[in-house]
Design a protein around this nucleic acid. Structure first.
Lengths: 205, 205
DNA sequence: TGCGATGCTGAACAGGTGTTTAGCGTAGCA
DNA sequence: TGCTACGCTAAACACCTGTTCAGCATCGCA
């Protein structure tokens, strides 16, 4: 009888705070900066409490990933049903913090199997969601799927936006403005002019 | 008079081995797995020797980065003067191990300032090199720089190839084959059919 | 009023970390 | 033959790591 160690409630406010803090630390200082002691200190609790809610650090990382993925999936769902789904997609994948977090999980998944499989699954789900929506708009967009398959458009948007965000965060310049202008021009060609001013991101300070 | 601590010769064979091992560990287990003890163990020497050649771990990381960047710059230089520079560029940026290492340095640069600036500088140098070559081929390629500026082509190739490599390493599938086919088709349109069979990568086993 | 569930901590175990210092052995030049 | 330069190590300092476990408060329900 392996009587399992006691574990905190899923609805606990503290648990939520710990997830928030972990996310922030990952974005600011990278996944390697996440330790029971560091998170405990920032939350002003003891390291033991971290393990009360998340038996191992892997559980903590996984929960951060799952929560974020659920949020982003919902957000994407909303955007995909907007009148300009491609623009919405472009805006979402150009999100600085989101990309930084994604990159950390990518790096983490390099040597944590549990995270790799979870990350891969979510990523596939995102992509398939996008594909479904985009397929329904092909006629309206006047896109010939033999010339530019919708899958290609999605991989390109994901890759190019990630490249821009990463290079910007490095402080690079060459080619970024031109690429953004290029994408904007083609978004305009496909979906027409932007229908609403792009919203400011929360906490961009 | 800060009489500097004694340091190993730059030409030492052991030093070279240490750099090789560090590179491999970074690719296999991520940068967080690099420690004086781990590298020492793999090289069958003592941790003190790591610090004999590289006073701090930052020095070790920086030297790995510099050596790799120099190699890649030379390699790129050779490829850029080949008859099909775009194809060569595509092949180089699709290199699995190279991309993995690059991603590790990206993540590292998140919280090591010295590495960030070095990485940014090298990346800019790569990009400018490419741009110079590409600009000379525009006429020959029949590319209208007002429609597809060469900078955009470079950012796109970098971003898309990185996306493909990363998604493949995650085990994703949706859209990858289509995107590769798409790129191949357009490379053919621009540079004509591949002039030589793509070479197998060394040590892909 | 009692009792069980929940939130949380103090203290410890068994490691791992970066880094320094003194010093040993040897190979090559004077 | 002496001496310097180089490759390398043993041992230690001070600290950070994941994780466990017994146990203290407190709060809501019976």
């Amino acid at each position: 009888m392996a009587k399992a160690r006691r574990t905190g409630t899923e609805t606990s406010e503290t648990r939520f705070r710990l997830l928030d803090i972990t996310e922030r630390v990952m974005i600011e200082d990278g996944y390697a900066a996440v330790s029971s002691r560091r998170i405990a200190k920032e939350a002003e609790v003891t390291p033991a409490l971290i393990h009360y809610y998340f038996p191992t650090l892997d559980d903590l990382f996984l929960e951060v990933l799952r929560r974020r993925a659920r949020q982003q999936l919902e957000r994407q769902e909303r955007h995909l049903t907007s009148p300009q789904p491609l623009r919405a997609l472009w805006a979402v994948s150009s999100d600085q913090a989101g990309t930084a977090l994604m990159m950390e999980f990518m790096a983490l998944s390099n040597h944590r199997k549990s995270i790799r499989s979870e990350l891969a699954e979510f990523a596939e789900q995102f992509r398939r969601n996008q594909l479904e929506t985009l397929a329904g708009h092909l006629d309206e967009y006047g896109l010939d799927p033999d010339e530019v398959p919708p899958e290609v458009l999605l991989v390109a948007i994901a890759g190019i936006s990630r490249a821009i965000v990463m290079e910007q965060s490095l402080g690079m310049e060459t080619g970024l403005a031109e690429t953004i202008a290029f994408v904007e021009k083609h978004l305009e060609r496909i979906e027409g002019p932007a229908e609403q001013a792009p919203r400011k991101r929360k906490q961009s300070a």
